[in-house]
Amino acid sequence: MGMSAYLIVRLHNLFAVVMVSGVYSLLAATFFVVVDAVDVAFTEAAVGAGISTVLMLGALSLTKGREKVPSRPAILPIIIALATGVALIYGTLDMPNYGDPDAPIHQHVAPTYLADSKPKTGIPNVVTVVLASYRGYDTLGEVTVIFTAGICVMVLLQGRRRRRKAKGDTA
C-alpha cells in the first residue's frame, strides 16, 4: 500500500495515477480481510477499487489526461506533511498495542453489542445489527448524504455544455 501511495505521488500521467489508486484500494481491501473486517473489505473492494476508479476515469475522459509537471518541487507541503507525521508518531507512543484485548476501545459498548445482538435480533452478523439497529440514526444520516450527493451530481452535470461567457462566470 505504501508503495502504491508513493507511486501516486511520483506519476504525472493521470490515467496511471487513477489505476494505481485502484490498486491501492484493492490492497487496502485485502488488508481489511487480514484484520477481520470482512464487511469493510467487501465494501472497499466494490466501492474503492470498482466504482471510484470508474468515476475517476469518467471524469478524466471529460478533462485532461496529463498533469502539468511542476517546474520546482514543492518544499513547503513536504515540510508541513513531515511535521504532521512526526507529531502524529509522537502521539501514538501512548496508544495501546496492536491487538491488545484490554485496549479502551474494547471496554466500552462493543462487549454489549457482541453479547446482545444475537439473542435480541436472531441475526449472527453483528456488523449488520449495529449498522441497522443500534446505530440506525447514523445510517439514516449516511443514506441521506448519498441521496444528496446523487442530487448534487445530477444538478451539476445535467444541462447542456455552455461555452465560456465573459460575465457571470463564477465557478
Partner: peptide, 14 residues
C-alpha cells in the same frame, strides 16, 4: 447480509 458479510451498501454498489 444478515448471516455473512454483505448488506445494503455493498449490494447497492454491485
Amino acid at each position: 447480509g444478515d448471516f455473512g458479510p454483505g448488506g445494503g451498501f455493498q449490494a447497492g454498489v454491485i
